[in-house]
Design a protein around this nucleic acid. Structure first.
Lengths: 329, 329
DNA sequence: TGCAAAAATGAATACGTAACCATTGAAGCA
DNA sequence: TGCTTCAATGGTTACGTATTCATTTTTGCA
């Protein structure tokens, strides 16, 4: 392992000068710079980022705690986050976390002294929130939110639930199902609340509400359960595009045609939903800004400008009316 | 920043003992362990991974240099790689690299003294290959391959090209197009070679071959160019599922029905191709093993067992006959 | 030419950990 | 009891860098 000391010896200068050549070359005479650079080239010297972090207390590393990639929402956000962070000179530790492994992920982030944490996977009442605040680690959540109501970037989830219900109601549906996820997660809770509120406003019962674990298998079972009911639903509001896409997959493979036999609407407006073969009707941010992008740009702002003001962004939403819903007749 | 020295002072022992409690507790008397653990709890001590790396010369970090996530192949592989690495106790630095930024990515990996590198984005003749070998950094490429022909995991790309052509030939097509990518990349080169060879075996001209930059825009232009030909192709062999999916998207939006108006076949057999609304006919590994998984498990094997034997895995392929191709009539 | 100010360089140190070597104390045994 | 062996612990150092402070060299100017 060739170190800056080796370079120094080889160039006939002190290690300090080598360090200066790399960090503040304007403080070093031109010929010295050349000498040192030549030695660096010759020895193939590459500075050790860990040693630097140790003394500078800065790692240029960000931890991303994302949901699983089989959910296309996290595909879009992960890409945006990693790319933006890299463009700003930060490396990204990526983890796809299921809720059980959350603590491990947190610890890993802290042990590595990351400069910041951007995460989706936070439970409504997760104690990690306080921990990060105490340790003075900048962080932000996207999509999901904590009860403390700080440092988040989200879409207006409640309103998304409202719009989802309204959309199929306006199409004349009465038997409307909801396929959601665990209510310990703010996203699922708020979207469902919006849905439920709208349904009861229209005096419609909620016999079709299913809470899944959002896995492929879970959605499959939910769909089958719904369709085996005496009077199956004619429209399904899915809590996320991921669930909507799974549902459509199941429906199609079970011989149903979407939207002729059943309407499906999602929430998130993920990229793949625009595909010509999918054309998923969904609810998404009016600005069509990627939530991951919003989160990471805010986080890096927090890191670099040490601003302590809370980031609270809630994007308003609208219906993206595509081809998976249809008027009830 | 609370350090192991602080813990030592607080527990009334030496820093060495604190280190031992965490790493080799069986060498420490029970009551001492308890004392130290109590101090650790009380002070919320968390060890500094960078300091540890510095002295141990081991980071438990792997760099992943992946292609962009808008290509579903990289969605599948990234998920597999990150999850497997995490399960083995490794963190993963993820970068989505375009070919220009390759060198930056390499440098970042080396500066951070990662334990290994797994990458897709290597050019056929990239000099980085030698560099990594010289620096004794374990690495492996998946999907793409280097001319040196070492340390790779791939599918049989040539044969995939052959099968792709054969498949549409057997369906009776004669006007067969190829939409590929830059031939500086092994994947594209070999797949095309297989396609081209099969075509010339059948005495068919290759007036329909287009090399794109694999971007959305590039594929769109390629498709439009093809369909504006006097006698447009009746089947399109796409070099990757990503290109096939883009092509189908364009075709659908341009009013064509796939496969009634035009057949499309991909290569890679990505997860999303199985979706009920997509049902992409494609060529993929017989074993259906995720290439990313193969690569990362081999890499970690190399890291932990210091085995120097070259990893050379070429998975054989078959046709996954789904619903985007149809007999020509 | 002489002197102060500024520029350029170097020596020493700190960051937080694990590893090596040294020391202490306890246990085992004749 | 006296000796050896082993368990338990501590002191010191190294890892590779940036930084602080000290020293040397150069520059500017009267």
């Amino acid at each position: 392992m060739v170190s800056s000391k080796d370079v120094a010896k080889h160039a006939g200068v002190s290690q300090t000068t080598v360090s200066r050549v790399l960090n503040t070359p304007n403080l070093v005479k031109k010929p010295t710079v050349d000498k040192v650079m030549a030695a660096i080239e010759e020895l193939h010297y590459i500075p050790n980022a860990h040693a630097r972090s140790l003394v500078q207390n800065k790692t240029y590393t960000i931890a991303l705690l994302s949901g699983p990639l089989h959910n296309p929402f996290f595909v879009d956000t992960t890409a945006a986050i990693v790319n933006y962070a890299n463009s700003k000179g930060y490396r990204v530790h990526v983890q796809f976390v299921n809720d059980e492994k959350l603590n491990e992920a947190y610890t890993s982030a802290v042990e590595n002294k990351v400069d910041g944490v951007v995460m989706s996977c936070i439970l409504l009442d997760d104690p990690i929130f306080e921990k990060f605040e105490k340790m003075d680690i900048p962080f932000i959540t996207y999509n999901r939110k904590h009860i403390n109501n700080k440092h988040f970037v989200e879409i207006d989830n409640y309103q998304a639930g409202v719009l989802s219900a309204q959309h199929v109601l306006e199409l004349g549906h009465k038997q409307i199902a909801w396929i959601g996820g665990p209510s310990t997660v703010s996203t699922f809770k708020n979207r469902y609340d919006g849905f439920a509120h709208t349904m009861s406003d229209h005096m419609l019962s909620q016999q079709y509400v299913i809470q899944t674990d959002t896995t492929k298998q879970g959605v499959k079972e939910a769909f089958e359960k719904l369709m085996h009911l005496p009077t199956p639903p004619t429209a399904i509001c899915a809590a996320t595009d991921a669930i909507a896409l799974q549902t459509i997959d199941e429906a199609t493979k079970a011989g149903f045609h979407v939207p002729l036999d059943i309407s499906v609407v999602g929430i998130d407006n993920v990229d793949i939903s625009k595909h010509g073969r999918i054309e998923l009707t969904t609810i998404g941010s009016v600005s069509e800004q990627n939530l991951g992008y919003l989160a990471i740009s805010e986080l890096i702002e927090m890191i670099e400008n040490k601003k302590n003001s809370c980031v609270k962004i809630t994007e308003s939403v609208k219906v993206f009316n595509r081809k998976t819903t249809k008027a009830y007749q």
